[in-house]
Simulated assay, not measured.
Amino acid sequence: MNPRPFDAAQDLADAPRVGGAQRPKDAATLILTRGEKRPEVLMGRRAPGHVFMASKWVFPGGRIERSDFTAASNGALSPDVARRLEAEMPARRARALALAAVRETFEETGLILGRAAPTASVAGPWREYRQAGALPDLSVLSYVTRAITPPGRTRRFDARFFMAPVEALRDPDRIEGSGELDEIAWIPLEEAQGLDLPAITRFVLGEVAERLETPQRPLPFVHMVRGRHVIDHQD
């Protein structure tokens, strides 16, 4: 497999170094896809006032919350996804990251990835999702990429990028943004590369295109070692 190129210079320009030492926070992103002949991905543009990646087009996602460790689900991670995640972390944390991707997508777009279930009254970030009458289905997720924000940035994340098809959504036409993304749209893959994107998002878009053709690709891990960007791969 030929390694996919990564624009390291652009990555540093996306979030300039401001100094200080921060540990990366666990985060998860969900890439929703639809269509076979002309695949599209769901993306949103971050509002201009954001401290991190303002006005950039990204996938829905955000950091893990404590409630993600205990949230209920209907459908476990596939054996392949569980194996890859659990090579990096305990199973409980792996499941929580997958749930964070589902929750953040719901919060930012209103889209529900899950199965119908009785409404439930729970406290915290999962309240509105459960009141909508659904439980997350983690079995539809595939694990696409891992990336850690370079040191010295205002925000640092150890982000896992998941992917799922539009068929996994309960009501794919009901997009209701929360305001964090000021525009949300299905965008053809070949057009998405022309948007104002963070370098990591551009890299992941290319990986998505490859993975739609060859699902069992090695998993890329983008991180910085001794001041240089490195891409490792996990089978």
Results as ranks from 00 to 15, higher is better:
1 M>P: 13
2 N>A: 14
6 F>H: 08
6 F>R: 04
8 A>S: 12
9 A>C: 06
11 D>E: 02
11 D>C: 10
13 A>V: 12
15 A>D: 15
18 V>R: 15
19 G>H: 07
20 G>D: 13
20 G>Y: 05
20 G>R: 03
21 A>S: 12
22 Q>C: 00
22 Q>L: 13
22 Q>I: 02
24 P>V: 14
25 K>V: 12
26 D>A: 15
26 D>G: 11
28 A>N: 13
28 A>I: 06
28 A>R: 10
31 I>G: 02
31 I>K: 00
33 T>G: 01
33 T>A: 01
34 R>S: 00
35 G>E: 02
37 K>E: 13
43 M>F: 03
43 M>E: 06
44 G>R: 05
53 M>K: 15
57 W>N: 00
58 V>M: 08
61 G>F: 06
61 G>E: 04
64 I>M: 14
65 E>L: 13
68 D>M: 10
73 S>E: 05
75 G>Q: 06
75 G>V: 10
77 L>G: 13
78 S>T: 15
78 S>F: 10
79 P>M: 11
82 A>P: 14
83 R>H: 11
83 R>Y: 09
86 E>W: 07
87 A>V: 01
90 P>F: 13
91 A>D: 14
96 A>H: 08
98 A>S: 13
98 A>I: 10
99 L>N: 05
100 A>K: 07
102 V>G: 04
103 R>L: 08
103 R>C: 00
103 R>N: 06
105 T>L: 06
106 F>S: 08
107 E>T: 12
108 E>G: 02
109 T>I: 11
110 G>D: 07
115 R>P: 13
115 R>C: 09
117 A>C: 04
119 T>A: 10
120 A>M: 09
124 G>W: 03
124 G>Q: 06
125 P>E: 06
126 W>P: 10
136 P>L: 03
141 L>D: 04
141 L>S: 04
146 R>V: 11
148 I>D: 03
149 T>A: 06
149 T>C: 02
152 G>Y: 07
152 G>E: 11
156 R>I: 11
158 D>L: 08
160 R>S: 15
162 F>E: 02
162 F>S: 03
162 F>Y: 05
162 F>N: 05
165 P>F: 00
167 E>L: 00
169 L>M: 08
171 D>V: 14
174 R>Y: 04
176 E>Y: 01
177 G>F: 05
179 G>M: 01
180 E>C: 01
182 D>C: 02
185 A>P: 08
185 A>H: 07
186 W>R: 04
187 I>T: 14
189 L>P: 04
190 E>T: 00
190 E>N: 01
190 E>M: 00
192 A>Q: 00
195 L>R: 05
196 D>M: 00
198 P>L: 03
199 A>T: 12
199 A>R: 04
204 V>G: 09
206 G>D: 14
210 E>A: 09
213 E>A: 15
213 E>L: 12
216 Q>S: 14
219 L>M: 11
220 P>Y: 03
220 P>T: 09
222 V>C: 05
225 V>A: 09
226 R>Q: 14
227 G>M: 07
227 G>C: 07
227 G>L: 09
227 G>V: 11
231 I>K: 10
231 I>G: 10
234 Q>K: 09
235 D>K: 09
